[in-house]
Write a protein that binds this DNA or RNA. Structure first.
Lengths: 214, 214
DNA sequence: TAGATTGTTAATCGATTAACAATC
DNA sequence: TAGATTGTTAATCGATTAACAATC
């Protein structure tokens, strides 16, 4: 099934909200509850669910535990996924602090950096020289990467990742990267995103695009 | 004019490429050149331009300097914009390192943090206690903010920003924030974005959504 | 039962792409 | 001129929203 990135993002957001709701003892949710929590609409929520054959009860909404386990299954949250980060700078640190990764089945297994000063194989996760990337990734069969290196080495690092066996990346380098058709790249250009908000403020479109799911 | 966030993002990306192209001495570009550079299509490029009345020459494409100055005008790049960051953690540091901000007319004028240890009014930009946010923002008439604080204080910080006069934010807190209709929020949930790539890899949709402009 | 909520179909909306005339 | 490229209109595509029957 072809799935829009936006839909997938929403499914993750539903899941996130359910976990929170569960922690405060809620047992049932309605499409309306979820819509409210995400700034979406009830129809959208039901539509998303119907795409996956997730069903609720006509009068009682969705049973939380049930819904959550269906989403977990769907989103592959029952399996672990290893990730490496290229570039051991502040962005990498910020990601590691985002925390909750481990809880989410995503494990940062190593960082890689050019700068010998930043390297520290004893750290957990280890910070290794770029030269080790190929062997590490191919041996451990890591498939997910993050590109947090300066833009002028980003393509080179990506190429290295690709031959090593990485299948998709989250890219923070502000540059268009070339990759095979079946390779996934999710571009995050933080500066452009900030400039976009700056632009919107300046031109103060009165009937506002005030909510973006990015 | 109502403008899709995606269109604005593309305009910024064109501009970015033009600056690079200019630096290596290129004088003319074609819609095809720009499309290639961004992984877009020539039709898309011309369509975007036509929305703004930007025109080229039938046979010679677009004169680079000319195009660039039109984009600068359009995107408000001839004016400066001040921005504050709430939360002086690694993400804030990463943003400051992104560099090029000043060059882009965006100036980080202050950071704010709860933790007295992190505060340093002598730093450039100054790192101030949250208590100072209201006065600082209203006095300096800052309109743009970044939310880089933990999710459980994000709404509170946003409310504070709003009353202080901020008109839009780039939000890194993984939570749906409530704000007035004419307030701009651009949500960046880095974890969800990474999870999305992880999902796409797992389900390995062969006919790939391999390029995302997020 | 009456009221509330789901699940789905059809309508709308918006963005991207294709087609092509204009013209340098 | 012939060929290449623009600018725009129409077609397509996909996602969101509205409407509403089904039913707990």
């Amino acid at each position: 099934m072809r799935l829009a990135k936006q839909t997938i993002l929403r499914l993750f957001q539903y899941r996130e909200f359910l976990i929170l709701a569960k922690s405060i003892g809620i047992k049932n949710v309605y499409s309306d509850t979820l819509a409210e929590a995400l700034g979406s609409s009830a129809t959208q929520v039901r539509k998303d669910f119907s795409l996956f054959g997730i069903t609720g009860n006509k009068r009682a909404g969705y049973q939380l535990d049930d819904l959550l386990s269906q989403l977990n299954e769907l989103l592959g949250k029952n399996e672990k996924q290893k990730v490496i980060i290229a570039g051991a700078g502040n962005l990498a640190k910020a990601l590691m602090q985002y925390e909750g990764f481990k809880k989410e089945g995503i494990e940062i297994v190593a960082l890689f950096d050019n700068d010998p000063v930043k390297c520290d194989p004893q750290n957990d996760p280890p910070i290794l020289p770029i030269e080790d990337l190929y062997n590490f990734v191919s041996e451990k069969q890591v498939e997910l990467g993050v590109i947090a290196v300066p833009y002028y080495v980003a393509q080179q690092i990506l190429d290295l990742m690709i031959v090593a066996g990485i299948k998709g990346v989250l890219n923070f380098a502000p540059i268009y990267l070339k990759a095979p058709k079946d390779f996934f790249i999710n571009d995050m250009n933080l500066r452009l995103e900030l400039e976009t908000v700056a632009y919107l403020i300046k031109t103060r479109t009165k009937a506002g695009v005030h909510k973006e799911s990015s």
